[in-house]
Simulated scan of single mutants.
Amino acid sequence: MKKLLFTIVCLSMCFMSFAQNTPQIGDVLVVKSPTSQFYNHIDFPQLNTLVKRGKIASYNPVINNEVMVSEVITKDNGNTYVVLKKKDGTKFFGLQTSVEANYDKAIQAGELVIKKS
């Protein structure tokens, strides 16, 4: 009986941890630095595009910015995408009001981090 109770408790904890990984509208995330030269899972503009528009070719203005999830999109292949807007309401690089990101891959790569309340 103890083993059955222990198994049920462990399974419920697993389901609860899985439920916390699904993004909700209004969740606050923090943009971290990319693991390579570019962001692979967040749809920021390329550095050459920033230079063409008169901006500095650097991702430093968005590192450690707080962003909010404004929309959650689940594709047919099972990937979850989120539309992100800056929490303070300004534009990314002075150009875009929102960007799209592959939620699961960006979290795993460390490009996005869930902000602790």
Score class of each variant (00 low, 15 high):
Leu11Thr: 08
Ile73Val: 11
Lys86Leu: 05
Ala106Ser: 06
Gln20Ile: 01
Asn60Met: 04
Phe92Val: 04
Leu11Cys: 13
Gly89Gln: 07
Lys116Ile: 11
Gly78Lys: 15
Gly26Thr: 12
Asn48Ile: 04
Asn102Ala: 09
Thr97Gln: 08
Ser36His: 04
Gly94Pro: 07
Ser70Ile: 03
Ile73Gln: 13
Cys10His: 12
Met13Pro: 10
Asp27Leu: 01
Ile56Trp: 03
Met13Ala: 12
Val99Met: 03
Pro34Met: 11
Cys10Asn: 06
Leu84Glu: 08
Lys91Leu: 06
Val113Pro: 08
Gln24Gly: 00
Ile25Gly: 14
Thr49Glu: 04
Pro45Lys: 03
Gln96Ile: 06
Lys3Pro: 07
Val69Ser: 05
Glu71Thr: 00
Val72Lys: 02
Asn77Leu: 03
Lys87Pro: 05
Thr90Met: 07
Leu50Cys: 02
Met1Ala: 10
Gln24His: 14
Val99Pro: 03
Pro61Cys: 05
Ala19Leu: 04
Thr74Gln: 13
Asp27Cys: 02
Ser12Thr: 10
Gly94Arg: 09
Ile8Ala: 14
Asp27Met: 02
Val28Gln: 13
Val72Thr: 01
Tyr103Arg: 07
Val9Ser: 14
Val72Gly: 03
Asp76Thr: 00
Ala106Asn: 02
Asn48Leu: 03
Thr49Pro: 00
Gln20Val: 03
Leu11His: 08
Gly54Arg: 14
His41Phe: 07
Lys86Thr: 11
Lys87Asn: 07
Ile42Met: 15
Asn77Trp: 02
Gly78Pro: 09
Val51Met: 09
Ala19Asn: 06
Gly26Trp: 00
Gln46Trp: 14
Asn48Met: 12
Gly54His: 11
Ser117Tyr: 12
Asn21Ala: 07
Ser36Thr: 01
Phe6Gly: 05
Asn21Val: 02
Phe6His: 09
Tyr81Asp: 10
Thr80Ser: 15
Leu11Asp: 10
Ile63Ser: 14
Lys116Thr: 15
Ile73Phe: 11
Asn64Gly: 01
Asn21Pro: 02
Asn21Gln: 14
Ala19Thr: 04
Ile8Glu: 08
Gly54Thr: 05
Val82Leu: 11
Ser117Cys: 10
Pro61Asp: 03
Asp104Cys: 10
Met16Asn: 12
Asp104Met: 08
Asp88Gln: 08
Arg53Asp: 15
Pro45Met: 00
Tyr59Asn: 15
Ala101Phe: 06
Lys55Trp: 09
Lys55Ser: 01
Lys105Val: 06
Ile107Arg: 05
